[in-house]
């Protein structure tokens, strides 16, 4: 009894410790965003200070936040929809109609994530230039959809694998075609998994900075570009950068909180057999 109490206490302390450690940078960023530039770089760091909205006003006056935020939403949602549109049929085929090459294909798909993106920057840039996709939301949606496709396929594949083949077979006996199987049986039953895959893809798209910085300039620039415009090699910028980052992560943070239950349910889906 006594030892289990100590163990519980230890786990609680450890859990809180890790949570605080993860949360601290975000807390510090929000705190810094309310400081003046001078206070932001003060040594020793100040915990108590007179808060100011100066940096937020400056950020707002220098860039049109809403246009960047709209682009972020459009390309994240677009990229995720595109990836799911390809990955659902793909994962279905691999999970329920595997061939001898399925395993190899899956591993090969994952291996494409091992290439550093900068290695293909110039070829992709030239392709985009030729296709007129530079600085367009469609261009970013394509890149994001394809970039996340391997992960999305893998996650969906594992979720689909959990589903008993018998249910689909019963559907086929009743005359369902492949499309019907996926739409009426597979997706409703694996919805938590599909939803968490979508959420993860959405977050990955939201935070992607390399391609958005390189392939957009103004018309299709998302929030990552917005943040990048507030750091500077000349002059102080910590407070402004923190304010810009705070408003940039706020939507996805709120969205994450709202969908927390769904996300956890999806990620632990099928964990207990």
């Amino acid at each position: 009894m006594r030892s289990s109490l100590t163990a519980q206490l230890l786990i609680a302390v450890l859990g809180w410790g890790i949570a605080l450690l993860m949360f601290f940078p975000i807390f510090w960023m929000v705190l810094t965003s309310f400081k003046t530039e001078g206070a932001a770089i003060a040594t020793p760091p100040q915990l108590i200070f007179a808060p100011t909205l100066e940096s937020y006003a400056e950020v707002q006056s220098r860039a049109d936040y809403l246009s960047f935020a709209f682009n972020s939403i459009a390309v994240s949602v677009g990229g995720t929809v595109l990836a799911l549109a390809f990955a659902i049929p793909g994962a279905y085929a691999m999970a329920f109609h595997p061939s001898t090459r399925t395993r190899g294909t899956l591993l090969w798909m994952l291996s494409t994530k091992m290439l550093p993106p900068v290695g293909v920057l110039v070829p992709i840039y030239l392709l985009f230039r030729g296709a007129g996709l530079l600085d367009t939301r469609i261009g970013l949606i394509l890149i994001y959809g394809l970039m996340n496709l391997p992960i999305v396929v893998w996650m969906l594949f594992t979720f689909f694998k959990e589903m008993p083949n018998d249910i689909l077979e019963a559907g086929r006996m009743d005359g369902a075609k492949a499309w019907g199987e996926v739409w009426y049986l597979l997706l409703p039953l694996t919805l938590p998994g599909v939803a968490s895959t979508g959420l993860l893809s959405l977050i990955l798209c939201w935070n992607e900075a390399f391609w958005s910085l390189n392939l957009t300039s103004s018309a299709a620039a998302p929030l990552t570009t917005f943040i990048a415009s507030f750091s500077s090699p000349e002059g102080l910028f910590f407070a402004k950068l923190s304010a810009a980052s705070t408003v940039a992560v706020a939507p996805i943070l709120v969205f994450g909180w709202l969908s927390q239950r769904q996300l956890v349910r999806g990620l632990t889906f099928g964990a207990v057999k």
Partner: peptide, 20 residues
């Protein structure tokens, strides 16, 4: 229309664009 970036990011971005 403005594209405002940090020096090193800007240099990489502009060089890619101009070189291609």
């Amino acid at each position: 229309r403005w594209v405002v970036l940090e020096e090193n990011v800007l240099r990489q971005r502009v060089t890619t664009d101009i070189a291609t």
